[in-house]
Structure formats: structure tokens, C-alpha cells
Design a protein around this nucleic acid. Structure first.
Lengths: 152, 152
DNA sequence: CACCCTGATGCAACAAAGTTGCATAGGGGC
DNA sequence: GCCCCTATGCAACTTTGTTGCATCAGGGTG
């Protein structure tokens, strides 16, 4: 989503050592236009240098834990990772297409929730919100009704 | 969440045969006060009669596919299942506690989103929305600051 | 009733995803 | 140099989910 982020700085700000592996993992997440799976992250990180599967999992846990990355459901049973909200990566809802399984990030702010109501009635501390839309993306819609104009 | 649901009828309405396994799986989901994992569902269903692991997975896929159940991320990497919105189970947001990992269902309607804005700008078809709050539940808050009154 | 078809289920083997324990390497302080 | 700490790798393992195939129950047809 963003290639001008200083990932090392982000990591440092969260109190972690910005090792090259960590930077590469976060970079893999941040430079993708939509959330990515652990496997894809490992593959991407491996393209620039060797990295072990286990290391990727451990780093992902760290990043999620420190609030640098966000874990969510992809299509089916898979889990995917995206950048957690930060300066260059504003919070945004996600859309999952039931047909092709693709996930996409929606425009930040395209969907607002009013947290104040819950905060009044809910006795815990709220740190974040994740909104996920489910449906059919425009590509799949087009495939389904290819002759819409003629069919009327 | 609800024990007066007629699960068999729900299943039938979706066009599926209400076999006893399917009813038991949906019942396991619907009678839990918070979303449950596939493993827990299998265990619950097994309490009333034998059921195979594979069958549970297959039924879960079916239920999710037919919109009877909803799949979401639990704590960490786990996936959990809850009732999809229906008559007796209105849509509601979920809360996940970072500390204890527990998930809870919030009151239906405690959090509203205005879909119209997205629908105007988004070129796909939206079928559903899932809202997930992340934070610390009140039990864990209490554990963290046990002597709040005295500490001031 | 025998026959056949269909869909649901079970079983076993498999594959993928994630985890654990332990060894090693590198950096900082003594 | 020595010690300690953390990050990483590696191999083995567990858990979770999937596939292929056999079986079984039910429903229709002769």
C-alpha cells in the first residue's frame, strides 16, 4: 500500500530491534496492495534474502503483538496480515469477495463507526476496530452477468 | 446465544437436508454464548452422539456457504464460528480480549455502520458486514489494576 | 422386494500450517 | 577472552484441515 514508509523506524518506534528480517517481513506486508498470508510473506521476504519459516511466524507474532501489523481472516480459512493503522497507513475496512476469494482494502474513512455508543455501554478498553465487508467484487459481478445491457 | 431456535428449520430453509449431524453442529454454534472453534464444535457435537472430524469440517463449510454460520478470527491464529444473522440471532459486533484471548458477542445494534456511503463508492455487491473490536476486557482490566481505588 | 441412484458419513492417509526445543551466531558489557 | 542476551535457523512434532474412497440410508422404479 505504501512504499515510502520507513519500516525500520516504525519497528524501532514500537520498541523492537529493527533487524533485517523484521524489516523485510513488515515491508512485505506494507508493500502489498491487499492483506497477505504468512506463506506469501515468507515467500516475499525470501526473495531478497534467506529467511526461515519459523522466523517469519515469530516475527508476525511480534508485529501483531506490538500493533504494527493486523491479523484478519482472508478467504475461507486462511489468515492474512495487513499494516496496522499508523501515520502512513490509515485504518480502513476490508472487502472479501465470496466468488474469487480476493481481499481488497477499501478507502480509509469510507466507512465510519461511532465508537462512543459502545464505549458507554461496554466495560472494557477498546483499542481497535476492524470492519470487514463480504460480498461479490465488481470483476465477479461482471463475469456473472456478462450481457447485462442486452438482457435488460 | 439462543436455545429456542429451531435449528432444523433454519437448515431446511436454506435448502439443505436437516440431518442430525448438521443440526447438532449448528446447535453447538448457536447455543454457545460466544463464537467457537471447529474443534470445540466437534467436541460439543460428539457429546450427544459420535461424529467424525471430517464431517464437522464439511458441515461447517456448508453452513458458512449457505449463510447459516459465520466464520471469523478468534484470538491468535484460530478461526471461530458464530451464528450468521437471522431472525433469532441479530447481527452484532464481536470483541476480542488481547489479554485472555476470549471473544464475546456485543449487544446487537450497539454499533452501527452507515453502509450507504460505501455502497455509493464501491463497485461491488455487499452482502454482509462484520465488526470486530480489539482490546482488554473488564476482567483483565481488573486483574491489571487490582488496587485502583487505593492507588488513585 | 431387488435394483439402482444419490447424498451423507466415516475412515485412513495425506498435506499444510503452525509450534517447540535446542543449537548457533552476533553484539554489548565486564 | 568470557558471559549473557536476543535473534535466527533447523528438525521434529502437533494441530488442523483435505482428499479419495468405501459404506450406508433413503427414495424411486421395475
Amino acid at each position: 500500500m505504501c512504499s515510502r514508509c520507513n519500516y525500520a523506524k516504525l519497528i524501532k518506534k514500537s520498541g523492537l530491534d529493527p533487524t533485517s528480517n523484521r524489516v523485510r517481513v513488515l515491508e512485505a506486508i506494507g508493500s502489498s496492495s491487499s492483506p497477505v498470508s504468512a506463506g506469501e510473506i515468507a515467500a516475499a521476504a525470501r526473495r531478497t534474502a534467506g529467511i526461515n519459516r519459523v522466523t517469519v511466524y515469530r516475527i508476525l507474532d511480534l508485529l501483531v503483538d506490538r500493533g504494527l501489523a493486523a491479523r484478519m481472516v482472508g478467504g475461507g480459512r486462511s489468515l492474512v496480515y495487513g499494516m496496522a493503522p499508523s501515520e502512513n497507513h490509515p485504518a480502513h475496512p476490508h472487502f472479501h469477495c465470496r466468488d474469487c476469494g480476493a481481499m481488497q482494502c477499501l478507502r480509509p474513512g469510507s466507512l465510519q463507526v461511532d465508537l462512543r455508543a459502545v464505549e458507554r455501554s461496554f466495560a472494557g478498553e477498546i483499542h481497535g476496530v476492524e470492519i470487514r465487508l463480504e460480498g461479490i467484487c465488481r470483476h465477479c459481478l461482471k463475469k456473472r452477468r456478462p450481457a447485462r445491457r442486452e438482457a435488460g
